[in-house]
Design a protein around this nucleic acid. Structure first.
Length: 703
DNA sequence: GTTCTAGAAC
DNA sequence: GTTCTAGAAC
């Protein structure tokens, strides 16, 4: 019976008719409203009357009639889109963060709408009371609390989130109108874009954005116009097209459709390290634009393969920026990956709030004194960041030489940090060609180009060191003349950086005789103890006894023998455990970034049956690549003199997946209930090289 | 590393 | 209302 639906959606897929394709975009419509605001009824009424294939994805029932999770809804929505259907997302969606992932389902073939059921709270509450029936008053009272609370924190959707159409309903008449509007949208129709039914005081903002979408020419004062797609952020496809085709940059005709395919939900890339930088030296320092653009593109290209998934964004204030168009053209010529390097029009101090572009690092075209003022980007950044930046900068350096960069971590008290998400500012000083400014190079472009190249090198190096903060950069050395201390030195002692309570292991390793109760075994090289908060039935720690060997990052080739000894001792205990309980499976390894001082090997059974395992971080620290298997560590140290350390933040906040069958679970309790039953074999990767003990037989691995 | 707790999510 | 998470404090 699904054949019928497939048949109905076929014409849309035919590339033959461009026009039809344009018109027949699929729709993802997010309902936005409190419980009992009428979201489900809305969907049902539309679906009853519509000739378009709609699917209602309802979080309350998606899980076989029971409540499900947001990821489940996303998955289901993506699947329905793939089948050519349009979807209603029937969940509260009251916060921007609740909506953002759904907005990402949009693309060249799919537009995303919001339908806001902003009905009086009273009405919702009385409906809930009726719905639950019994003890109207009590239920109503509880419902009131819930609904009020939810509504208190609501954030009405904005076009800037990426919606192409938003319909606001403030009463039941509005709802009826909206139902009729949506019901009338046939498979090949499209609804006009913009905000509808908005009568709020905030209407101005909405209209402002709408205007901006329609006529970019007249809105040059707008803070941000994306000049390139920034996939995954709030700029929807339509915005890109409109802007590019009507602003004299039609040749850009951006590939908006880059990944519209809803088949796989693209990972949230809001935490991809991104550096926004202004063009250095081309404003007040009057550096030649042609030459400067060559250097920018050349340096970007040079750093491209070191970037990983990190991104570089050249920012300027206006759409008419000469340097932006020069760089864009040259970057395109060189086929530089436009996902990882692009240009952006906007205020570098408001990239997130005004432009929807998340940049954790921004560069400042600084002056040599590293002081605020002077106008331009420098003044703007110091101004936006507040006194915190000036203080943090002065802590690190008092001045900067041309060609150098200085990385300054931004205190979290800085508005730039908490509003814009900027964690680091990198001051850069470029060459000066302006006779009215200090150190003028007097048109010496041989020297000038060299200095500008150095400036960008320093900048990008600084950014890389931030992007890889967790990975050791043993010789990150001097990226600047300033004493930028990004990393603690890995060799020395860093007693200060470990809070007293995180030194427990160190204390035991140094003086095991003082901790008789805890110590299971001790030798000159190591101490074995039970983990104080075991995360599984069996969980012990083998501590190294070398002072200053705090963590995996400190391990070098000279520790190879020790690592092997620790492993052997771990295996001996493993065998003891296996003798006591043959059903156990044990894994030995290190945390990439441990919380507690003193190198320690975890010997942990894979049941993870423990009430101490409470947090996502716990789970992921033992089941993702954050956990470095002892066998691998030994091999890496043997071959390369050090162990691979994987950046923690991402890994530790990954979704919760069963370590056996890899299924995903919405929260710890559900995960735990799953793993208590899951009998799937461990992933083949884990069964190699003796990462798991006992080693499984082939019959366990093969299907 | 844990505990505590505010607030997000439903 | 409860459940759960995540950040701050320790």
């Amino acid at each position: 019976m699904e054949m019928d639906i497939d048949g109905a959606s076929k014409p849309k897929d035919e590339k033959a008719c461009e026009q039809e394709k344009e018109k027949g975009k699929q729709i993802v419509a997010l309902l936005v409203g409190a419980p009992a605001s009428g979201k489900s009824t809305f969907c049902e009424n539309v679906m009853r009357a519509s000739s378009r294939p709609w699917v209602r994805i309802c979080q309350d029932t998606i899980n076989n009639g029971k409540a499900g999770s947001k990821p489940l809804c996303l998955k289901s929505a993506a699947a329905s889109l793939k089948e050519g259907k349009s979807v209603f997302i029937d969940r509260c969606n009251l916060g921007k963060d609740q909506r953002v992932d759904f907005v990402k389902l949009g693309g060249s073939e799919v537009e995303v709408h919001a339908v806001v059921l902003d009905l009086p709270a009273k009405l919702c509450i009385s409906r809930i009371a009726k719905r639950t029936g019994h003890e109207g008053n009590l239920q109503g009272g509880k419902a009131a609390a819930v609904v009020n609370r939810m509504l208190q924190n609501k954030e009405l959707p904005k076009l800037s989130e990426g919606f192409s159409r938003i319909t606001f309903c403030r009463n039941e008449t509005d709802v009826e109108t909206a139902v009729n509007t949506y019901a009338a949208v046939g498979p090949l129709d499209t609804l006009s874009h913009g905000c509808f039914g908005q009568k709020d005081p905030s209407a101005k903002t909405q209209l402002g954005i709408l205007k901006f979408l329609k006529r970019p020419h007249e809105t040059d004062t707008q803070d941000s116009v994306p000049s390139q797609p920034t996939e995954g952020n709030s700029q929807c496809g339509k915005t890109q097209e409109t802007v590019s085709s009507s602003s004299g940059m039609a040749n850009q005709k951006i590939k908006v459709s880059e990944d519209p395919v809803p088949g796989s939900i693209s990972q949230d890339d809001s935490d991809v390290p991104t550096l926004a930088f202004p063009s250095i030296s081309t404003a007040d320092f009057q550096f030649n634009l042609e030459k400067a653009s060559d250097i920018i593109v050349q340096k970007v290209e040079e750093f491209m393969d070191k970037l990983g998934n990190a991104k570089l964004v050249l920012v300027d204030l206006t759409e008419r920026s000469k340097i932006l168009s020069l760089v864009r053209a040259k970057a395109a010529e060189k086929n530089i990956d436009s996902k990882r390097f692009f240009t952006f029009v906007g205020d570098i101090c408001q990239l997130y709030t005004k432009g929807g572009l998340r940049c954790n690092v921004i560069a400042n075209a600084a002056n040599w004194r590293l002081k605020p003022g002077g106008g331009g980007v420098n003044a703007a950044i110091f101004n936006a960041a507040g006194a915190a930046l000036e203080a943090a900068t002065m802590d690190r350096a008092k001045s900067l030489h041309p060609g150098n960069a200085l990385v300054v971590p931004l205190p979290s008290t800085s508005p730039l940090y908490y509003k814009e998400g900027v964690t680091h500012v990198i001051h850069v000083l470029g060459p000066n060609m302006n006779p009215n400014r200090p150190n003028c190079l007097d048109n010496d472009y041989i020297k000038g180009c060299k200095v500008l190249e150095d400036a960008y090198s320093s900048l990008f190096k600084g950014f890389l060191s931030v992007a890889n903060t967790q990975v050791s950069f043993p010789s990150s050395g001097s990226i600047s003349s300033g004493p930028s201390k990004l990393k603690e030195d890995t060799s020395g002692t860093k007693t200060n950086s470990w809070a007293p309570c995180l030194q427990a292991l160190y204390n035991i390793a140094m003086q095991p005789e003082k901790h008789n109760k805890q110590v299971l075994e001790a030798s000159d090289d190591l101490v074995v103890i039970n983990d104080m908060y075991p995360k599984a039935k069996r969980h012990l720690l083998v501590l190294a006894r070398i002072k200053g060997l705090d963590c995996l990052a400190d391990v070098r080739k000279e520790h190879l023998h020790l690592l092997k000894t620790m492993h052997e001792v771990g295996l001996r205990w493993t065998n003891k455990f296996l003798g006591e309980d043959a059903s156990l499976v044990i894994r030995l390894g290190y945390h990439s970034i441990p919380s507690m001082r003193q190198l320690h090997l975890h010997v942990i059974s894979q049941d993870f049956d423990s009430k101490c395992l409470k947090h996502k971080k716990h789970w992921n620290s033992f089941t993702t690549a954050f956990f470095r298997d002892s066998v691998d560590v030994i091999e890496e140290v043997n071959n390369h003199g050090k162990a691979t350390i994987l950046d923690d933040n991402k890994l530790l906040s990954m979704e919760l997946r069963c370590h056996r069958c890899r299924s995903a679970h919405p929260n710890i309790p559900r995960l735990k209930s799953h793993i208590s039953n899951c009998q799937d074999p461990f992933p083949a990767e884990l069964q190699k090289k003796g990462r798991l003990v006992p080693v499984h037989t082939n019959s366990d691995i093969d299907p």
